[in-house]
Amino acid sequence: MELELRHARIVVTISTTGSISAGAQELGLPQPSLTAQLRRIERAVGGDLFVRSRSGVTPTELGARLVPRLADLVRRADEVMAEAQAAAGGPLQLGNTEWTPPTLRDALQAALPGTPVQTRTLPPQAAVEAVQRGSLTAALVPRVPGPGGPGSGESDTGEPALGRALVVREPVWLAVPRGHRLAGRELLRADELAEVTEDHGLPWVRSSGDHWFHSVERRVLGAAAPARVLHQVNSHQEAMNWVRVTGVAALTTPSGAVPEVTLVPVAGTQRVEMVLLWRGSAVSRETLHTLVDTVRAYYCGYARSRPGYWAWMQRHPDEFRELHRYLPEPVGA
């Protein structure tokens, strides 16, 4: 087997993350697949690159010599591809899930004045596949921590084609109509959800089985799933419209809510990660930093428009570690 750029990325990622399991998560690969690929690489170079242990991996003598060279190869390849694409003058095409506010595209265009920005809204898995094919430059997709889910998988050739950066971790909260008695609750426990809403006469809407949020609802509600479900939706916006117009309850991430409904925090729920995905050679490091920074700043701007959510973020900064630079300093800090 001849070494290829994708092999260099595998070795560098394992070295950077410090373990095969963490490398697999970073690359969006099943751990057995990554282990098998590393073994093939080690056979090709004629020796082990890492010493495995329960605490992670450390480079062997051979690894200590080769890993820095492979890291330099990856860096140079990314720079070449990014410069080539910039010279071609093509637009930056960003995919997003659920809905894409015009102001988000405007913010990205302002941050990248020399690059035309185009946005598309499409389901998470379709966005992942579009980035893998190259029809999208990058995509913002939701990811539920754990194996599988949007953003996982490899290309048809087995190449871990996508880079990723965590933008923010969002909680999953209860949405109720404005003025409802539950709107005054400061906090609910997940095991209270079905009981509390039934006691207060609230039926529910749930996500349809083929929508990415369906698995999140199942994890949050568990055995406490509500009995009265009026409708199954296929987007957060549809769910919020039902809450606003029909007076039902629904689960949502704060970014999926609308001002006409009230969000009630729920303790101990599943968190949803908003992840930026891109092809490893399609975007320069400078552009990536700009994308991540702009989306995080935009997210905080949205949170400020929801006083209850912004106040929660300020009181619980450890839940939003990726956004620390955008949160105000605690009083007395």
Rank of each mutant, 00 (worst) to 15 (best):
G114N: 12
S207I: 00
D210V: 14
G222A: 08
W204T: 04
E186L: 06
P177K: 08
R143S: 09
V117D: 01
A227I: 08
V168N: 09
P203V: 06
V243D: 02
V233M: 05
E186V: 11
V220P: 01
L108G: 03
D156G: 10
R181C: 03
L202G: 10
R185Q: 13
T121M: 08
E186K: 08
A138L: 01
A224R: 10
S207H: 15
G222N: 06
R143C: 02
L166N: 03
L230R: 14
L230D: 14
V131M: 00
P177Q: 08
H211V: 02
V176H: 07
A194P: 03
G179H: 09
A130N: 04
R228W: 10
E217W: 06
H214R: 13
G163W: 00
T157K: 07
T115D: 05
P177V: 11
V128W: 01
R164M: 05
D210I: 12
N234A: 12
H211I: 04
G201H: 13
S208M: 14
A127V: 01
L187M: 14
A224E: 09
R133M: 08
L230I: 08
P145A: 04
V205S: 13
E186T: 14
D210S: 15
A227Q: 13
A225S: 14
W173R: 02
S208H: 12
V131A: 00
A227D: 11
D199W: 13
R133W: 07
W212I: 05
R164E: 06
H231P: 04
G149H: 03
Q109C: 00
N234V: 11
L174D: 01
S155D: 15
H180W: 13
A127K: 01
A126P: 00
R228A: 15
S208K: 11
E186R: 14
A175S: 14
S135M: 02
A194W: 03
P116D: 11
D210K: 09
V220F: 05
E129V: 04
V167D: 02
E170Y: 06
A224M: 06
L122D: 12
L166M: 08
G184E: 13
V216G: 02
R133C: 04
T246C: 13
T246R: 15
G158K: 11
L174I: 05
G149Q: 03
W212A: 10
L112P: 07
L162P: 00
S155C: 05
G158F: 10
R189V: 08
L166G: 03
G114S: 11
V176N: 07
V172S: 04
S135Y: 01
A227P: 05
G222M: 07
R218S: 10
N234Y: 10
G149A: 07
G201N: 14
L122W: 01
G148V: 03
A183S: 15
P147G: 04
P124L: 07
G149I: 04
G134L: 05
T119D: 05
Q109M: 02
L136T: 01
P147Y: 04
L166T: 06
G151I: 06
E195D: 15
H231R: 14
A223M: 07
P145Y: 02
T197Q: 08
S207E: 09
N241W: 09
A223L: 07
D210R: 12
G158H: 10
P142W: 01
A183D: 14
S155N: 12
